[in-house]
């Protein structure tokens, strides 16, 4: 491999690292190439470029849940508390995972759980500890990172109400009715789709999409956008149908939609696919304003 080929390989690996990620072997190969091209070792330009492209393609205005914000503030308290310790050694801090915390509670483990699981003496010790902790807690000053929600959370409306709100408020609503792709192979799916470009929100509604066997297949929505190649429509999310009644599903476009021209629902393998072969199209809806 000459120098030019090596540089091309280096760029391929850097691109992969910032998109799909590298395997162990590829990481080793990249490290070797960094020795020959050391200027690239600390270069973030490819990573920043992919981040900028990513940001240009998605809506980043979603709001973080309040409980998650509180967890991060608690993490910050621990992190900066540890970082302030004058030990001069590498400090590692890992936030506790939700499942770990839940498993600990379920198993009755953890400091208090272990106390409770011992015997009556454990109960007495636990009670004393709780009293002592309460006393200390009441006496100590308020922590810097205690998060107080500004207001009581507003309950999320049910999907039919969300759909109604969108239809009533979105000035740029587009609609479409589900029809068969091939009239010779009718699926007789009824319902419609609504989409608002300004809010990047929409819903699909069905009255008789067949119940699917989740172990064998799932339904997946595809959005054909004017800016996209028709062979690779935008993934609009996967969903299952559990009953034969009316179904309303919120659309989950994986990238920002510019001008939708058609929606399609396909049956795919469980979990969905990245690119559909459009082999089993349940229904299509052409957009009308």
């Amino acid at each position: 491999m000459n120098d030019l080929e090596k540089q091309e390989r280096l760029l391929d690996l850097l691109t992969l690292r910032e998109t799909a990620g590298l395997g162990k072997e590829e990481e080793r190969e990249l490290e070797e190439l960094f020795k020959q091209f050391p200027d690239w070792a600390d270069d973030d330009s490819i990573a920043l470029t992919t981040a900028a492209i990513n940001l240009s393609m998605i809506d980043t205005n979603e709001e973080m849940p309040t409980h998650l914000r509180s967890k991060i503030l608690a993490d910050a308290e621990n992190f900066f508390g540890k970082a302030a310790e004058p030990k001069g050694k590498v400090l590692e801090f890992e936030p506790r995972k939700k499942k770990e915390r839940e498993a600990e509670v379920n198993a009755g483990e953890g400091f208090l759980g272990k106390l409770i699981n011992t015997n009556w003496l454990g109960w007495a010790v636990a009670a004393a500890c709780v009293a002592l902790a309460l006393n200390i807690w009441l006496a100590k000053p308020v922590k810097e990172f205690v998060y107080v929600p500004a207001a009581t959370p507003t309950p999320t409306p049910a999907l039919p109400q969300q759909l109604e709100q969108l239809v009533a408020s979105a000035p740029d609503l587009v609609k479409g009715a589900w029809t068969d792709l091939d009239p010779k192979k009718p699926q007789n799916v009824k319902g419609d789709v609504v989409w608002s470009n300004s809010t990047q929100k929409g819903f699909i509604r069905f009255s008789n999409l067949p119940v699917n066997d989740k172990t064998k297949e799932t339904y997946q929505l595809w959005i054909f956008d004017e800016s996209q190649n028709a062979k690779t429509p935008v993934d609009g999310g996967v969903f299952d149908v559990d009953s034969s009644g009316d179904v309303i599903i919120p659309i989950d476009a994986k990238i920002k939609i510019k001008k939708p021209t058609m929606f399609a629902v396909t049956a795919e393998k469980p979990g969905g696919v990245v690119v559909s072969g459009l082999e089993k199209v349940m229904a299509v809806a052409k957009v009308s304003t």
């Binding site: 205005n61 973080m64 929600p149 500004a150 919120p250 989950d252």
Partner: peptide
Amino acid sequence: RLSPDSLEDLTVEPVNNSDGNLQM
């Protein structure tokens, strides 16, 4: 791959907070 449960998860909207709009 995203799991089929992810769509169900998306129906749980986060509560309002005071975040400002992030500019691109």
